[in-house]
Amino acid sequence: MATITVCVPVYNSSIYLKDCLESIRNQTFTDLEIICVDDGSTDNSLEILKEYERMDSRIQLIVQERNMGVGVARNIAIDRASGKFMSFIDSDDFIEPEMFEELYNKAIEKDAEIAICDVNLYTDGGRLNKRKWFTPIEGKATPETLYKNTQPTNKIASLDLIRREGFYFLEGNSDGVYVDLMVAAKNITSVHKPFYNYRIRANSLSSEFRVKNIQESVASCKLLLSNCKDYKEYYEFKLIEALLQLQMVSIKEENHNTYQEARKDLKALQFKKNTYLYSLLKKEHSAPVFWAMINILPRNYYVSSILLRMLR
């Protein structure tokens, strides 16, 4: 039984896959179980995975005949995992050599169920992106520390916590559901170093803003809201944020019906009464843009369309 189970879901990432696997294999913390799930790749990712499985006895390869999505791939690894902690690494990213050693030591020192580290964001061209994707947490998570901080890839989480909560990812590209695990954790700790390197790929699932993708996010947010035990207003805020994004993408794709459906949902939520709209979302935008987002975007398809064209 290894101390840390590492899950690597793989789908058509052959360009970056070797860098990812080498960064995991070369960790200073070596007691790893590495579960790679090929999710129906059509490039040569599977051949690379087979090569590394032969090379490193810690690697277990699971092959899915057809693409089922990153959520399903991660859940397969959760069922197979045997480590004390579990980590999720995307196959087009890479990690620094000390990541697992420092996260594990900090988790043990602080008796924490989740340990998180800072993130470097890189564009396809290798340029460092200044956007922040990390807020340190010590103790219980709060809505303020959860916001834009729930991706699973820069963390280790206790497998006992995962089992206790019956945690699984939703199908599709559903990193945001990790918020449930973070809310449930009794104690979270942080390492203030950028050990996780995330690539912002132009053609990756996480960077594609399409109606279908945002509809999946809305569905996830609705499910999380219906099941939440704590922080109901925060979960509601995340649904509001997803609905506003859905409206914006619907306008860009000239999908009036989807825009109207999102408008009805926002009205039913009485979204302007949500306090996190002002304490969290407002900080992300200039005052004029925020005003337009909550006053024009949810109400007027045609005026919003003109404004979005002006901002391109």
Rank of each mutant, 00 (worst) to 15 (best):
F85D: 04
N67I: 02
M86E: 02
K84Q: 15
K106D: 01
F100Q: 05
E98W: 04
I108S: 06
E101H: 06
D111L: 01
S91Y: 00
G69W: 03
E102Q: 15
I62N: 08
I76Q: 12
C117T: 13
D79I: 00
F94N: 13
I89Y: 02
G69M: 05
P97K: 12
D93V: 03
I108R: 14
A112S: 12
V63A: 01
D111S: 14
A112N: 06
D79K: 11
F100E: 12
V63N: 08
A107G: 10
C117E: 10
F85N: 02
I114Y: 06
I78E: 03
A112C: 09
D90L: 07
E96Y: 11
A73C: 12
F94P: 14
A115H: 05
V119L: 02
E102G: 00
A81K: 14
N67D: 07
E65D: 14
N75P: 15
R66Q: 15
A107V: 10
M86K: 09
A73H: 07
I114C: 07
I89R: 09
N105Q: 13
F88L: 09
V119A: 00
A107W: 07
I59N: 06
E65V: 01
A115W: 02
D93Q: 04
I114Q: 10
F88K: 07
Q64S: 09
I59F: 10
N75I: 03
Q64C: 13
G71P: 15
E101W: 00
R74S: 08
K84V: 09
K110Y: 01
N105W: 00
S87V: 03
V63E: 15
D79T: 06
